[in-house]
């Protein structure tokens, strides 16, 4: 079973490679906050279509992209997601891909309400090892503004859309915050006027 999973992940990777080249600039752009968000960013949106409810996404992206040709190998790193129930999932993530994209491609339940335009905090992940956290570039002011509003914020919290796979991150473990358990404690409640 494990074997099958990792194989599936690898197939995912080769698919992702194509998607990645197409969407990469968009994600990086968001990092610099210079991009003009628009509702017509369909390539990115399509990536998410179906991801919410089923696994059809996987197949449909596959058929969309096999025709585009090209099959050179791309380097990947290992990333482990620990979901809300503590379950672990090991992924191979291509260099340059954001953790939000990686999660969605692998049916990991990580929200991404603003589709990586730095306008929400729903893709909040916790870097489980501080050494890995320190390898990341510091969050920008804009990312920090959103992290302010993340539920269950920790010292090593980041937005999944802003963590991009690089060789140094090989082996990183990311936890998805279990929101409901801590709703009352961590919930952001602005003080009354």
């Amino acid at each position: 079973m494990l074997n099958l999973n990792s194989r599936l992940a690898r197939v995912g990777v080769s698919i992702a490679k194509h998607l990645c080249t197409r969407d990469y600039t968009y994600t990086r752009g968001a990092r610099n906050y210079c991009l003009k968000p628009s509702f017509q960013k369909n390539s990115f949106t399509n990536l998410y279509k179906g991801a919410m409810f089923g696994k059809h996404n996987f197949l449909s992206t596959f058929s969309n992209n096999t025709t585009e040709g090209g099959s050179e190998e791309k380097e990947t790193i290992s990333v482990t997601f620990v979901d809300k129930d503590g379950e672990e999932k090991l992924l191979q993530v291509p260099i340059g891909m954001s953790m939000l994209e990686a999660a969605h491609e692998n049916d990991i339940d990580l929200e991404g309400a603003c589709e990586a335009s730095l306008a929400c905090s729903t893709c909040h992940v916790i870097v489980m090892d501080v050494e890995y956290y320190n390898k990341l570039e510091d969050p920008t002011d804009e990312e920090n503004d959103m992290l302010d509003l993340a539920f269950g914020l920790t010292e090593t919290s980041r937005l999944g859309c802003q963590v991009i796979a690089t060789p140094e991150l090989d082996g990183v473990r990311l936890a998805i915050h279990a929101a409901t358990r801590n709703f009352a404690v961590d919930g952001y409640v602005p003080k009354p006027h």
């Binding site: 628009s38 509702f39 309400a113 589709e115 335009s117 306008a119």
Partner: peptide, 18 residues
Amino acid sequence: DHPETKIVVNQFSRVAQH
């Protein structure tokens, strides 16, 4: 002037079209 905050309607539309 906060169009990026409204991107979430993509997700909500998929819910309504389920």
